[in-house]
């Protein structure tokens, strides 16, 4: 098992944050979630964001995932500065460059596993049904759910749902996969399997994974650990 790294390897940058600050306003009170944060993530990394609750892990992932915008500073993802992009452009950036894995799986409950995974491809458009299904079935097989294509999320266990979510995140072959506490809702054994699956996909395909966690068992799988304390990267 490789030791967690503190510096990114010298490779092409997929994410760059410069002086990023994010404040939340609670009535008249301004609560800083991230303070003057600088961070670079290179292609092919398998990195963890660690830290206690409230340290800013999810906020950081939201900014990198283009679902939120920084109060100040510059966030660049796949070569595009997100603060300058329209909602439509941010949506396209998420669709074509980023895959999401959520703590609560967040699958569409009325769609089958196959349909859930296929959905981002339908949003992208331009891919024929046969190719879509081929790609989805290959991914289902890779995440060990080849026989569960027609099951709806309600008919799957937590671990199986998260595998479907991983397959959905990877189906568009994104440059970056973001996972927010991907094992938090799973038992430790299943959580371990999920993190190993992610690691395997990272090693085989070179997909960049950035996940938040506060589970030490999960952290030890990461090539690099970014520790956040009170909205800042700990030295």
């Amino acid at each position: 098992m490789p030791e967690p790294l503190s510096e990114p390897p010298s490779a092409e940058r997929i994410v760059q944050l410069e002086g990023v600050r994010k404040d939340y306003r609670l009535g008249a009170v301004v609560v800083p979630a991230l303070r003057a944060l600088d961070l670079t993530i290179s292609r092919g990394e398998f990195s963890a964001i660690a830290g206690p609750s409230g340290s800013g892990k999810t906020t950081l992932l939201n900014l990198i995932g283009c679902v939120d915008v920084a109060t100040a500073g510059r966030v660049t993802v796949a070569g595009q500065e997100t603060g300058q992009l329209s909602d439509r452009a941010l949506t396209r950036l998420r669709l074509f460059q980023i895959g999401f894995i959520f703590q609560s799986f967040n699958l569409v409950p009325v769609l089958t596993a196959l349909q859930n995974i296929e959905f981002p491809l339908l949003l992208q458009g331009g891919i024929g049904r046969a190719e879509r299904h081929e790609r989805v079935r290959a991914l289902l097989a890779r995440v060990g759910l080849g026989d569960h294509a027609e099951h709806r999320p309600g008919e799957l266990s937590g671990g199986q749902r998260q595998r479907v979510a991983i397959a959905r995140a990877l189906v568009t072959r994104p440059a970056l996969v973001l996972a927010d506490e991907p094992t938090a809702n799973l038992d430790s054994k299943t959580g371990g399997t999920i993190i190993e699956l992610m690691q395997q996909l990272n090693e085989q395909d070179g997909t960049t994974f950035l996940f938040s966690t506060h589970d030490q068992q999960v952290i030890k799988h990461a090539h690099r650990v970014i520790r956040l304390v009170d909205g800042q990267i700990a030295a």
Partner: peptide, 8 residues
Amino acid sequence: GTLRAIGM
């Protein structure tokens, strides 16, 4: 939120 995040 999920659908918007995955690019809808």
